[in-house]
Every structure is written in structure tokens, then in C-alpha cells.
């Protein structure tokens, strides 16, 4: 077993274990922190695949911005393990069995296909900023500009939704 396989297995175990801890921990703050660990493991996978730009963006945007927003909202509402709503045991069991059956079906379908493609590890310049930037600004410049409109509308939408309704008090 070479080093790449070892790192792959380590990162996979870290990602799946942290994801299971995320959905099973009582306190919402612990869930947020476990999800950050999952994102760091996925960033490690990106680095292993030599997608360096996406690894950095994943850490900055997801672990840095989005999860801090989640943490901020959780702490704003003062949620903890005592206020956590709990589904009854039977429904939880049904959910886990449904998910497990889905995973079983999908994995068995994947194992049945006889594709022997390999994934390029640690080399290749597809994930470098130069290639990605040239591709983004030459072939995908229209979706890039449209995404700025999406951001503007999301920003306005968040402000409009979050604003206190003043007409209701009159």
C-alpha cells in the first residue's frame, strides 16, 4: 500500500466519521464544528487530486464563511442540547433503515459496472488557478456575470426577509 492510498483512506474515514458525528451529536454547535471537520477532509481530498484552487476556495468559502454564518445563527438563537427537538425513536430507525437501503442499492449498482478507469492523483494542471481562470473567463464568462446578478438578488432577498414587518404593528 503506497502513501497516496493511505492518505485517501485516512481522509475518507475522517470525512465519513465526522459526517456521522454531525448527524448524531445532540448539540447544534457540535454539529456545526463536526461539519467543518468534514469540509477540511474534503479539502484534503481536493489537494490529493491536485485541485488546489478548489481546496483553498472550499476552506475559505465553506469552512470560513458559510459555517461561521451557521454558527452565528445557532448562537443567536441560543440553541443547545436541552432545547434540541428530538424525533421519536421509531421514526429515527425508519430513517436510518431507508438511508441504508438506498446506500446498499447504489453501491451494488456501482460495483456491477465494469469500468476500470483510474483517477489522476497529485499531478495535472487542471486544478491550477491559471487554467481554471482562463477557462472561466473565456468559455464561462456569461454564467459568471449571471451569478453576480444571483448574488445581488440573494442579498436583497435576505435583507427583505430578515427585515421586521412594520406594517403589521399599525
Amino acid at each position: 500500500m503506497n502513501l497516496t492510498t493511505l492518505v485517501f483512506i485516512l481522509l475518507s474515514v475522517m470525512a465519513i466519521g465526522s459526517a456521522i458525528m454531525m448527524i448524531s451529536s445532540k448539540s447544534p454547535v457540535h454539529s456545526v464544528l463536526w461539519l467543518i471537520v468534514v469540509f477540511f477532509a474534503i479539502s484534503g481530498h481536493y489537494i490529493l487530486l491536485n485541485a488546489q484552487f478548489l481546496a483553498i476556495v472550499n476552506i475559505i468559502v465553506y469552512a470560513g464563511a458559510i459555517m461561521v454564518l451557521f454558527l452565528f445563527v445557532v448562537m443567536l438563537m441560543n440553541l443547545n442540547a436541552e432545547t434540541e427537538p428530538v424525533k421519536n425513536y421509531r421514526l429515527q430507525l425508519v430513517g436510518v433503515i431507508t438511508g441504508g437501503a438506498l446506500l446498499l442499492v447504489l453501491v451494488s449498482a456501482v460495483m456491477k459496472i465494469d469500468v476500470e478507469q483510474l483517477v489522476e492523483m497529485k499531478v495535472g494542471d487542471q486544478g491550477l488557478i491559471k487554467v481554471l481562470g482562463m477557462n472561466l473567463f473565456k468559455n464561462y464568462v456569461l454564467p459568471f456575470e449571471i451569478s453576480s446578478v444571483l448574488f445581488l438578488s440573494a442579498m436583497i432577498g435576505a435583507v427583505v426577509i430578515g427585515k421586521k414587518d412594520e406594517t403589521a404593528n399599525q
Binding site: 465519513i16 456521522i20 448527524i23 447544534p28 434540541e84 424525533k87 429515527q92 441504508g100 446506500l103
Partner: peptide
């Protein structure tokens, strides 16, 4: 697939 299924199970079992 494993990560995606864990996400689905989380949506099904949590109420928060």
C-alpha cells in the same frame, strides 16, 4: 455516495 446518504439520513432523522 456514502457522504450523500449520510446527508439524506440526517434530513430524515433530525427535526432542527
Amino acid at each position: 455516495l456514502a457522504l450523500f446518504t449520510i446527508g439524506i439520513v440526517g434530513v430524515l432523522v433530525r427535526r432542527n
